[in-house]
């Protein structure tokens, strides 16, 4: 009797365990939080909050004002000396390759600083300049108050932790925002072609 009961109990526990594991991994697809955020964004596009952002030119804009265009968004801090310093160069190159859709007002690149207390207007401008900014279609912005920064980081799923050397380590990526102002995809920060593809394919449709 106890053999059958144990078998039954074990099967129930196993079934419940598999169900819980499936739920916590989005059906065995996401074992890391980074994969989970990408799947979630793809399946449930997120509307971006209308928080005020200050550009390197000192203007105040927000995401809803950029509707009607595809946005490629990355999160940065301008003091980065490690691999994330390449993010700027990547955006500089994207700006060159996407020159025509940018010209036509269909694409804008946006770099958001998650360290606005140290990244002022001057630092943002210097960052763009040393990354080879061509002057149009790339906005470097900073949220003007800390709670807005928290909101943005939550919506985009950005985590930045101190690296113990005065800088940060963060889950760098390129976020793709569609013309309706919704975050629809997140691609690898070092695969700009993928992000570019989204924008160009989206335009054909």
């Amino acid at each position: 009797m106890s053999v059958l009961r144990t078998l039954l109990a074990s099967l129930l526990i196993l079934a419940a365990g598999i169900a819980v594991l499936a739920a916590t991994t989005d059906g065995f697809r996401a074992f890391t939080s980074e994969t989970a955020r990408r799947i979630d964004v793809r399946e449930h596009p997120r509307v971006l909050p209308p928080v005020p952002l200050q550009t390197a030119q000192g203007r105040i804009i927000d995401f809803p004002a950029l509707r009607g265009r595809w946005l490629l968004v990355d999160f940065i801090y301008t003091r980065c000396m490690t691999f994330c310093s390449v993010q700027g160069t990547e955006f500089g190159q994207l700006q060159r390759r996407l020159a025509r859709p940018i010209e036509a007002g269909r694409v804008v690149l946006v770099s958001v600083s998650f360290d606005p207390s140290r990244d002022g207007v001057a630092q943002l401008a210097a960052y763009q300049q040393r990354s080879g900014d061509r002057g149009t279609g790339w906005l470097a912005v900073r949220p003007t108050n800390p709670s807005d920064l928290d909101t943005l980081m939550r919506v985009f799923g950005v985590t930045a932790i101190r690296d113990g050397l005065g800088g940060y380590v963060h889950n760098a990526a390129i976020a793709v925002v569609d013309p309706h102002g919704r975050l629809v995809a997140i691609t690898d920060w070092d695969a700009p072609r993928e992000a570019e593809h989204y924008v160009l394919r989206g335009q054909v449709q």
Binding site: V3, R5, T6, A9, I13
Partner: peptide, 9 residues
């Protein structure tokens, strides 16, 4: 314990 023979469950 009757549901947990040999501690398996």
């Amino acid at each position: 314990s009757t549901w947990n023979r040999s501690g398996i469950s």
